[in-house]
């Protein structure tokens, strides 16, 4: 018996995955000739894009010590209300981090802590070299965004109106081309929010959270914390989203997302974090973290893992017995 995790996965990181074609690069202000999977190319175009303004746009990062100038987010000896105990965590600029773990492992708490929305009992959270307590909610909002798991609205707004409230700036085109490629929300801009299906609603929510810091994401300076963005999405949009996240990270943005799809996450992240009962069990390269021993210990299932070049195939073989 297998679960959806056994679905065959395409190889990630190739441009064909997201179907992001050259016209999107133009929309993003990236030289269309450059290939997105070439990190050098992206870095070049980025430095060209924000070279002179870097000093002032990176204000809070000025205090960075040279040693961790690439760390955008870090946690040290953090304890949060008997839900999370974390010794030392770092998220580097441009890193794509997926966080996995069983229900109640503290994934959401970790994201909320990193977003600066829950107070820690102990320890320090640093964002761009500045302690979280020195950030105001308003300045935080222009640097990082959070996709929370539940969001309610009993008002009958149209999707378009809803998104416009959260967009960082007035734009001629509300939805940037890349977002539209991955999320495909244009089709229901005029629909009423409460009439969308669960998956459609989730795509709108992802779009909303990314629009909040879109200018930063475009410059490759954004930080996005996405709590189970894959929830409710159909398989096509799951992979489109994973590719979008990867793509944004390659531009220099830092994205942390939680997920329950181990097989997808293991192949679409730079760093995989494995949480259990509020503690970090393993973190690092997916192939080092998504090992049979680690996964079986944390998830209490049997896994079959096989490695191909740079692709991890992960299958759940025997889930919990009901007897």
């Amino acid at each position: 018996m297998t679960t959806k995790n056994s679905t065959t996965h395409q190889r990630p990181v190739s441009t064909s995955d997201v179907k992001i074609n050259t016209s999107d690069h133009a929309a993003l202000g990236v030289n269309p000739k450059q290939n997105i999977s070439s990190k050098n190319g992206v870095a070049e175009s980025l430095s060209a894009a924000d070279g002179p303004s870097e000093a002032d746009s990176n204000g809070p990062a000025d205090s960075n010590s040279l040693a961790d100038s690439h760390t955008v987010l870090s946690l040290q000896h953090v304890k949060v209300a008997s839900r999370l105990w974390v010794e030392d965590l770092h998220a580097k600029k441009g890193e794509c981090i997926h966080i996995i773990g069983p229900n109640g492992a503290g994934k959401s708490t970790l994201l909320l802590t990193l977003a600066g929305l829950i107070e820690t009992d102990e320890g320090t959270v640093m964002l761009l070299g500045k302690p979280m307590s020195n950030w105001s909610l308003a300045t935080l909002a222009s640097v990082r965004t959070l996709l929370a798991q539940q969001s309610e609205s009993s008002f009958h707004l149209s999707v378009k109106e809803y998104l416009s409230f959260y967009a960082a700036a007035e734009r001629d085109v509300l939805i940037p081309a890349v977002l539209e490629k991955a999320l495909e929300v244009s089709g229901f801009l005029n629909k009423i929010l409460t009439q969308l299906s669960g998956g459609e609603r989730q795509r709108v929510e992802i779009c909303r959270s990314l629009l909040q810091i879109w200018p930063q994401l475009e410059r490759g300076e954004g930080i996005a914390l996405l709590d189970e963005p894959l929830q409710g999405l159909d398989i096509r949009h799951q992979y489109a989203l994973a590719s979008l996240v990867k793509f944004l990270c390659e531009k220099g943005n830092t994205i942390l997302m939680t997920s329950h799809d181990i097989a997808l996450s293991a192949n679409y992240c730079d760093s995989l974090w494995l949480l259990q009962k509020g503690r970090m069990v393993a973190m690092g390269e997916p192939r080092d973290v998504a090992t049979q021993a680690n996964l079986e210990k944390v998830f209490e299932c049997h896994f079959a893992i096989s490695k191909h070049d740079n692709f991890l195939e992960i299958q759940v073989c025997a889930p919990i017995s009901l007897e």
């Binding site: 929305l117 959070l146 929370a148 959260y166 929510e205």
Partner: peptide
């Protein structure tokens, strides 16, 4: 969009 989204 709810409390958390507003805070964020």
């Amino acid at each position: 969009a709810g409390e958390l989204a507003a805070k964020s």
